[in-house]
Nucleic acid binder design. Sequence first.
DNA 1: ATCACAGCTGGGAGCGCTCCCACAGTACCT
DNA 2: AGGTACTGTGGGAGCGCTCCCAGCTGTGAT
Lengths: 348, 348
Amino acid sequence: MAGTRRHGGGRGRPTLEEVAARAGVGRGTVSRVINGSPRVSDRTRTAVEQAVAELGYVPNRVARALAANRADAVALVIPEPETRLFAEPYFSDIIRGVGAELAETDLQLLLTLIRTPKERQRLADYLSAHRVDGVLLVSVHADDPLPDLLEQIEMPAVLSGRRSAHESVPYVDSDNTGGAQSAVEHLIGRGRSTVATITGPLDMYVAQCRLAGYRAAVRAAGREVDPELVAVADFTEEGGRRAMRRLLDQRPDVDGVFAASDVMAAGARQVLRENGRRVPDDVALVGFEDSAVARHMDPPLTSVRQGTEEMGRAMVRVLLEEIEGPSDRTSKRPQLVLPTQLVRRASS
Amino acid sequence: MAGTRRHGGGRGRPTLEEVAARAGVGRGTVSRVINGSPRVSDRTRTAVEQAVAELGYVPNRVARALAANRADAVALVIPEPETRLFAEPYFSDIIRGVGAELAETDLQLLLTLIRTPKERQRLADYLSAHRVDGVLLVSVHADDPLPDLLEQIEMPAVLSGRRSAHESVPYVDSDNTGGAQSAVEHLIGRGRSTVATITGPLDMYVAQCRLAGYRAAVRAAGREVDPELVAVADFTEEGGRRAMRRLLDQRPDVDGVFAASDVMAAGARQVLRENGRRVPDDVALVGFEDSAVARHMDPPLTSVRQGTEEMGRAMVRVLLEEIEGPSDRTSKRPQLVLPTQLVRRASS
DNA sequence: ATCACAGCTGGGAGCGCTCCCACAGTACCT
DNA sequence: AGGTACTGTGGGAGCGCTCCCAGCTGTGAT
């Protein structure tokens, strides 16, 4: 970082003051017109609007941010290494949703990838240095200090997913338990008698929920939950492969598998093929997330759709509310759980 | 958009002034220390640094931006509808690269998705309203006015890919022609006698280049370029399917296919399966991009790796140079072409 | 001792806005 | 006629920095 950074655009961009002069009014009045205040007479408003148009005036957002003590921007924080592993499509879908919803406001989107603890530290500084009005946190781990830290400095924040069943911070989550349950019910409904599950790491709440859904569905069918049919993995493709091998090894009679993520389902599918098991004829397979991976598998994967893009949109809506008027521990926090939906394809 | 937007963080964040008071020096001196100016005595520097530490001072970037007339931020502009269609993984890989490279500077990343012409208009305003120091443009169409517009307002910009062979603006591109050529040479080298190609829309320069590479390889093998073996598509999966059907219809003897994108290869693969053609036994298949799609296909897809993440990094490096000291039409523009590499998998 | 010229330092001016207070004008009551 | 209550409006103050110009030191040459 060195040297003189030239400003990009308008050398001689018109300022508020110039607009005021041209319209023959004061600065305050122009400001009111720009910000849509109702306390301006129609005649004045028209005059100002004309001057704005003639001069091609565009408010300087930096000056506005400084004067008004706000940033007109929100940050989307993405912990990078993990995201890469298990949630590729998730990540871009969230961005899409967030971007779409934000486009309808005049807020800007600051993207922050975190790779190292050092960067996480810098992040806290950034955020408190008034660059953003609020923060969206994606795929937060149970032990992540960031949410509480943000709470301390009174920075509005919304999580995607919960850290635990008693999440204290505003969040938007999808119905992991219900989604998993419907997936397993579907497998059982298709006549599968020995339905296994491949889970995510159980220190993640999302993995716990999907496992709980599996259990609920098994019990609802009047069966016992067999520990040999539960293989713990880590949301990666390789993890899915290992888990499937173990399953095949311990319970060769398995005829249905619910994987807690599409990527793990893809890994499982490879192992099934290697072992000469046909999908869905010998083993029916269902995933979770309904990402691009699911559509591209052979056969296409039945999966639990969680509407990731809609989650992104919802996060923004919640965040805007928090920015407008923050909730606190005493009031009811905005916490949303979005429905999921089973998308049936040829794998089951 | 209404109401009072609360500032997020520091109610009582310390200011430069307070640091100066505590260190017993003037504002200017603190500013010099913060910005690493050499014109400060060691004693003073130490005193200031201590005051900074004690107070937990973090410079207000907004104030800095206003005073210094720079933004400490760059924008990554992504035209959304197209990106969704043909370059899902491309898009997130670029972001990854850009984010990584930017992390080593103190620049922030502003993500801007463009969906409509109206949003494109607003974008020009944003950019000229001093919110960013430079712009990264992804997947720019041949007729996109934005690059020239940015040039007019002297906003540093870098493209990913070229609009044409005579691109005037700084860019980072991958060796599309060479990559395509090596893919087709590979197919021919594997003994395939009737090698077809599925191209992107030919009004895109990237598609032209990949077709040119196909042609070059065919000719280099001493063969004629048969128009019936060239199927024009649009970088989508459905386009890939349609093109493959046409190819199979017109030239049932086809035994090798080079698709100009992984996604189109995926579409082609489906049609091949429907028609009972085995991959690679009956038809060898190669894609372009080496995205996640390629790895997840069955069989895994041989593809031309273009190092998308590295492209993102390179774009940032070029942009930083442009911001430091802009090149103009008379000087030599920084224009980079990154090498590609064939990644062999089971599909060929 | 005098001058020149460095190396450091303090602080005024100003970036382009918003906020808010004061005040003019009009209308409507006693 | 005087009061009260608005609506509209102008412009000072200030957000927290950077820039830059003086001024203040100390050193070495004259």
